[in-house]
């Protein structure tokens, strides 16, 4: 038996919107720790890891570990029927081939049940060890989204370089080139507007902008984004989900031919 009640149901709606462009089908794993998902895009270039910790739910009951295969577009269709202020409860019985999403309006005057068919998904689970990164950049998520969008109108790839001067996002295309440098800036009114660069050593990596743009669909989940870079690892683009966990996107770099 599984029953997860999330008062801030809009979080779940935002999570689905953040990942459904990247991943079509995925297994949602429920355990005592929380509600999680790990999935790669169809070309195995990017990976998304989601964790919503059990403590973040108003009610969390998960009698045994359960993996539920879902088509994310179908989940999204269901969750779009929930109001932004609705309380969402996810329910499933052991061995059942369906999951139920229950939506309650804030004043309890409307209650809706949406039952969705589960599917068998044969997915690979990758072990991602903790790593020391050469550079970690924290910046406003809206700024990062803007940069990715702007650069993708010029080129297909972005070179992200971190030096003592700051973090530079560069691209080149048929019509020309573009460079955007963000300097460390801690002297802002609100901490979420700061750009903070922790650099062990300079690093420069190239990535496909298409994926970066897809990651920025998670912008509504968090005011800040953390970009962790090392020359021998995929970049990690992390959006913290307040009080609950995170959504992390891993993207393999491009290398010179």
């Amino acid at each position: 038996m599984l029953e997860l009640r999330l008062v801030q149901g809009s979080l779940l709606k935002k999570v689905l919107e953040a990942i459904r462009e990247l991943v079509t089908d995925a297994n949602f794993d429920c355990s005592a720790t929380g509600f999680s998902l790990q999935a790669m895009d169809s070309s195995h270039v990017a990976l998304v890891a989601l964790l919503l910790r059990s403590e973040g739910f108003e009610h969390y009951r998960c009698d045994r570990n359960l993996s539920m295969g879902m088509n994310l577009n179908n989940v999204s269709k269901m969750l779009r029927c929930a109001g932004n202020n609705d309380i969402i409860t996810v329910k499933a019985d052991d061995g059942s081939d369906t999951v139920t999403f229950m939506f309650e309006s804030p004043n309890q005057d409307k209650i809706a049940d949406f039952e969705m068919k589960l599917m068998d998904i044969d997915s690979e689970h990758l072990g991602i060890p903790d790593a020391e990164y050469q550079a970690i950049v924290r910046m406003p998520s809206s700024e990062f989204a803007r940069i990715c969008k702007d650069l993708s109108s010029i080129g297909d790839t972005v070179i992200i370089s971190v030096t003592k001067e700051g973090v530079k996002f560069s691209t080149a295309g048929d019509i020309g080139t573009a460079n955007i440098v963000c300097r460390q800036n801690k002297t802002v009114d609100k901490p979420e507007e700061a750009t903070i660069i922790e650099m062990q050593e300079p690093v420069s990596l190239t990535f496909a902008l298409r994926y970066m743009n897809s990651f920025t669909k998670a912008t509504p989940l968090s005011e800040t984004v953390t970009i962790s870079l090392s020359s021998d690892l995929p970049v990690v683009v992390e959006y913290k989900i307040a009080e609950m966990g995170y959504i992390r996107f891993y993207l393999a770099p491009k290398i010179e031919e």
Binding site: V45, A252, K254
Partner: peptide
């Protein structure tokens, strides 16, 4: 421009 690496070149199946 460049060769796109795969995530599975960095992380192994559990």
């Amino acid at each position: 421009t460049g060769v796109q690496l795969s995530i599975t070149e960095f992380y192994r199946s559990e």
